[in-house]
Design a protein around this nucleic acid. Structure first.
Lengths: 290, 290
DNA sequence: GTCATTCTGTATAGATAATTACAGACCTGC
DNA sequence: GCAGGTCTGTAATTATCTATACAGAATGAC
């Protein structure tokens, strides 16, 4: 019997396009915790993937197995082979790529950045920032520069869905002085500023500060000059094997913050979100769950 | 629920003396190829150990399990814990924050997402995508939807600095049909599309495809319908403990891709970058650091 | 919009597995 | 060798799982 050259996991991926919606959902559930998730009963697996058992049978057939038990047996054989040779330490992330491939080098650097950034972060500051942003009485302004524009946009978009009173400012445009007029003491200004730090951003921060605005700053490990007048400052590692800096860690932090603010304001903005959901449901691309 | 301090394997060995002849035979068979041998049916296991099925039940009861299925479930849990990546199980990332703090939970999920995404990625596709983007003869169009706008902007901005012939398209706006006119066979269209997938994005992809444009797609684990007409598709895990999805892994991939394209086009675009630097310095938007 | 096609879940029948009951086998000590 | 006990397997029962049939829902073509 010729050994299967592909693992079932790989086969699931390669034939992913040939699968239907429910089957993909199932395939993902299997890959999620591969291969253990496939070793229970068909009932368990189906329930975990939130599909019906026949769907499991159908997909397994598509993969070429006569039935679920055979599929499972194949999984066990695979696992057996994998376990006998000691599990190699995971220094490569993209297993299919050669050791020095950029995918592995880059990812390793990013993981390292996450590690170092999180080790240094002050949870009290983080919680304080979330509390400020969750306070409906404070208007929130979000500002980014040239490179950080995408980050501030991303932050703004989510926050704007979560709560009312959120405004986006482009620090480079000469329209931001107008926004300053709207700021009141106690309002919050979220600033993104990575090297090379922009003068207009610093100016904005200083002026806002004078009006009693609370400033939350996301910056890099060398810290933007804005940090001098920021109430809360979060600095992230951004160095990667690239000509450019990485925004991954900053994005991780801001997504985490959004998750927390969302949670804290859930009661007050539930309706807001649900209205939004309804609009999305119209697209009918996604299955509804109860 | 108190965690079991001993593994089932250890328990088998420590209570080996309390077992009967047939049970020892069975215990040995289980340990022979641990733990996979215990994951089949009770019948298979009994046959393999050359004992009867009731013997299996009796021994399992001696170990303290109510029945064979529970024993097997415990084996699976054990296995699961064993094969999950040690890096992903680094529970506390922000050491100063309490265990269940959102910073730790969120980061853990993201690391897990990175791990799973990279494990599934096809390096050949990745390299092929980089080659397409590094080819100066091909014009590149970058398109994003509502949520993915920030990502496509970020990608566009970097690519635009690296090379000439890069255009940004907003899939929602009704201006994109004009961009279609500019597309020629062999050009490249980079599309970002996460759930919930947008109809206008799909339409754009189809029309571009008809014109012989190469399509590179960044999507989520469930894959946008665009994947059907994409030449290269990169799907990332995006689920985190939040009401929203995470873009971190997608950003990681696109940054890596930018790093590689930059490297490949370095000779040709060195001047471009230097000219850019000079412009920025002249406008004095940025403070100079040494 | 309407129709054909494909997909997906419910219900159910069929298969298999897990457990129990029980009787014979095997020790052990006299 | 035989009585008391334990151990073990066979066979029957029960529970659970797997596969199928079919109908309703979703999708895609016109």
């Amino acid at each position: 019997m010729p050994e299967p050259v592909e693992t079932i996991g790989e086969r699931l991926q390669s034939s992913f396009d040939a699968l239907t919606r429910a089957e993909r959902q199932l395939a993902n559930a299997i890959l999620e915790n591969y291969p253990v998730s496939g070793l229970g009963s068909i009932t368990t697996l189906a329930a975990h993937a939130k599909v019906s058992t026949p769907t499991v049978v159908r997909m397994v057939r598509k993969l070429g197995f006569p039935g679920f038990p055979q599929f499972q047996a194949a999984l066990r054989r695979e696992l057996e082979a994998k376990i006998t040779n000691p599990i190699a330490k995971h220094d490569t992330w993209a297993e299919n790529a050669p050791d020095g491939h950029i995918l592995n080098r880059f990812t390793e650097a990013v993981i390292d950045n996450i590690h170092q950034t999180l080790a240094q972060i002050d949870p009290q500051s983080f919680d304080a920032a979330c509390a400020l942003l969750a306070d409906p009485k404070r208007t929130v302004f979000v500002a980014g520069g040239r490179i950080t524009r995408a980050l501030s946009d991303y932050f703004y978009m989510h926050l704007q869905m979560i709560r009312r009173g959120v405004t986006s400012i482009e620090s480079r445009s000469n329209s931001w002085p107008h926004s300053l007029l709207d700021m009141e003491a106690g309002d919050v200004l979220v600033i993104f500023d990575n090297r090379r730090y922009e003068n207009s951003t610093i100016k904005l921060a200083e002026l806002a500060r004078e009006q009693g605005v609370k400033i939350i700053l996301f910056t890099d490990q060398w810290r933007s000059p804005v940090s001098r007048c920021a109430d809360l400052c979060f600095s992230s590692r951004i160095v990667v094997p690239s000509a450019w800096d990485s925004s991954v860690v900053i994005m991780l932090l801001l997504e985490t913050m959004i998750a927390e603010v969302q949670k804290q304001t859930w009661d007050g903005t539930r309706e807001r979100i649900e209205a939004l959901e309804e609009v999305f449901d119209r697209t009918r691309f996604f299955r509804k769950f109860n």
